[in-house]
């Protein structure tokens, strides 16, 4: 475990806690894309299939349970909770996320580290995670006015993968034969997708004005 990966995991954990805090305290999910949350639940479910077969460390197991639990509870809140679900603007959150799942599955069947169920699911979860933010970014473009917590949530989510990229560079130079092209390329694509959001986020932060994304 190196500092970059630890910072990445903490940033990711914090992004999820910011979102849960928002939904739990103000009982609102305005500006949050349910589709992105559902995609993340699928990402964690398919990536952590080895939860009970491979024990790596207590930290690894606990974090997996936290990610699974939080993503599923966020989806539950947005679908079932009588107050929260009312604030979900489903007519704005229209990205057809099913169109993301099939290509990722096909790609995982074609490009994987080994043609086994676990490896294909693992590759699928990486490809899906790379594009899972798209419904959320589209929703932000549509709703334009981004409240602070949502902006912070998306920013932290993008920052976590940036830390992971530093972690992969570090591990490449410090560990023998540490090569994971599938992870590296997916992680890079994922971070690039946040590019313009980061640009506008920093601008609004620098000029101390409300975050506005161009239409």
């Amino acid at each position: 475990m190196n500092m970059f990966r630890f910072l990445g995991d903490m940033t990711h954990l914090f992004s999820v806690l910011v979102l849960l805090l928002k939904i739990h305290t103000i009982k609102s999910c305005a500006g949050i894309s349910l589709k992105t949350q559902e995609l993340y639940a699928i990402v964690f479910a398919t990536r952590y299939l080895d939860l009970f077969t491979d024990y790596i460390s207590l930290y690894n197991t606990v974090m997996k349970l936290v990610y699974l639990g939080s993503s599923l509870s966020i989806v539950w809140y947005m679908r079932r909770h009588k107050l929260v679900r009312r604030s979900y603007d489903k007519d704005q959150d229209t990205f057809r996320h099913h169109f993301l799942i099939l290509p990722c599955l096909i790609l995982a069947l074609l490009i994987n580290e080994k043609f086994t169920f676990m490896e294909v699911m693992w590759a699928f979860s990486l490809y899906l995670e790379a594009v899972a933010i798209l419904p959320q970014l589209v929703l932000l473009q549509r709703t334009r006015n981004i409240d602070n917590l949502t902006g912070q949530y998306v920013f932290l989510l993008g920052a976590y993968r940036s830390f992971y990229i530093l972690n992969w560079i570090y591990r490449y130079f410090t560990e023998v034969h540490y090569v994971h092209w599938i992870t590296w390329i997916s992680g890079l694509v994922q971070t690039l997708l946040y590019g313009d959001f980061f640009y506008y986020y920093f601008h609004s932060w620098k000029n101390n004005e409300k975050l506005q994304l161009p239409a």
Binding site: R5, D9, H12, D50, D54, I56, S57, N60, M63, K64, Y67, N112, E113, K114, E119, W122, Y164, N167, H177, Y178, V179, H180, W181, I182, T183
Partner: peptide, 10 residues
């Protein structure tokens, strides 16, 4: 691709 290493990352 090489043999799948143990997935130690989240």
């Amino acid at each position: 691709f090489h043999s799948p290493q143990l997935k130690d990352e989240l």
